[in-house]
Computed example of a mutant assay.
Amino acid sequence: MTTFVLLHGGGMGGWTWKYVRDLLEAGGHKVHTPTFTGFGERAHLIGRDVGNATHVRDIVNVFRFEDLRDVVLVAHSYSGTVAPGVLAEVGDRVTRVIYLDAIVPHSGERTGSLMGYVPEDQLAGLDAMLEAGDGPIGSGVDEMQRAAAREHPHLMSAERQAWLLTNLTDQPMRATSSLIPVGAEKITQPVDYIAAADTVMGQMHERARALGWPVHDHPGDHALLVGDPEGTVALILEIAGGR
């Protein structure tokens, strides 16, 4: 039996792991799927002050209050920016890390600029504005994902895509603009990277290889955890079994 903590992507929530969680629990594993402040069922807590530091604290507190140890930490998409900060605080409780088509940040970067969405100088100015209590609360990532899916549908059934898109919520703007103080280069635990074939994360795959992480290819798209939970679980268990 393995204890998994599964971290979700932008615009999503712990709910997005539903199919993966069901399969892992059916196999006798213990699974935690926390939701970051301002996302999913915690969307009512969105605010200008909610960013990387808040989300790191969300997960560190799960580890502490649930007394989690000997954990395999899995980070999808946006949560790749959160995982290094979590590991800096409770890394002694984590035995292995899996990045699931996730962002691979370097210390001092910002999600919006490293993904090429907003120039660094503009993003830094926006972050200062948010810190002062002004500016947009949300980033509109949920509507961006819905628009992208209309142009390029996900590799899953229409019913499952509808479930995914309907449940998306906005992402706090500060999660996009704030500095990421602890980058992936600081992780000392073993890390494996699962790379989707149809994704905007190609640059992140190269960053993973540059860090010397083993990279495992998956034929799906960025929402592989919803579109192919069986294949995703098979890869996660193969990697976790290699401890």
Results as ranks from 00 to 15, higher is better:
1 M>R: 08
1 M>P: 13
11 G>C: 05
12 M>Y: 03
13 G>Q: 01
18 K>D: 15
21 R>G: 13
21 R>T: 04
22 D>N: 12
23 L>D: 06
24 L>T: 02
25 E>F: 06
26 A>G: 06
27 G>E: 03
28 G>W: 00
31 V>H: 06
33 T>A: 09
33 T>I: 13
37 T>E: 08
44 H>C: 13
44 H>F: 14
46 I>Q: 13
47 G>K: 04
47 G>R: 01
51 G>C: 00
52 N>Y: 06
56 V>L: 11
57 R>V: 15
64 R>G: 07
67 D>G: 13
70 D>A: 11
73 L>I: 08
73 L>T: 05
75 A>G: 12
81 T>N: 15
85 G>C: 12
85 G>T: 09
86 V>S: 11
87 L>N: 10
89 E>L: 03
92 D>W: 00
101 D>C: 02
102 A>P: 12
107 S>P: 05
107 S>Q: 11
109 E>F: 00
111 T>H: 10
119 P>Y: 04
123 L>S: 04
124 A>Y: 10
127 D>W: 04
133 G>M: 04
134 D>H: 11
134 D>V: 12
135 G>A: 12
138 G>C: 15
141 V>P: 11
150 R>G: 11
150 R>A: 15
151 E>Q: 15
152 H>F: 11
153 P>R: 15
153 P>M: 11
153 P>Y: 12
156 M>L: 11
157 S>T: 08
159 E>I: 08
161 Q>S: 11
162 A>C: 12
163 W>R: 08
163 W>C: 09
165 L>P: 08
165 L>C: 08
166 T>S: 15
169 T>L: 13
169 T>E: 08
171 Q>H: 13
174 R>L: 07
175 A>V: 07
176 T>K: 14
180 I>C: 12
182 V>Q: 12
183 G>L: 15
188 T>A: 07
191 V>Y: 01
194 I>R: 04
194 I>P: 07
194 I>N: 01
195 A>G: 13
200 V>S: 09
202 G>F: 03
203 Q>P: 15
208 A>M: 00
209 R>Q: 03
212 G>V: 06
215 V>A: 01
216 H>N: 01
216 H>K: 06
219 P>K: 00
220 G>A: 04
224 L>T: 03
228 D>Q: 03
229 P>M: 02
229 P>D: 00
233 V>P: 01
235 L>Y: 02
236 I>F: 04
242 G>H: 09
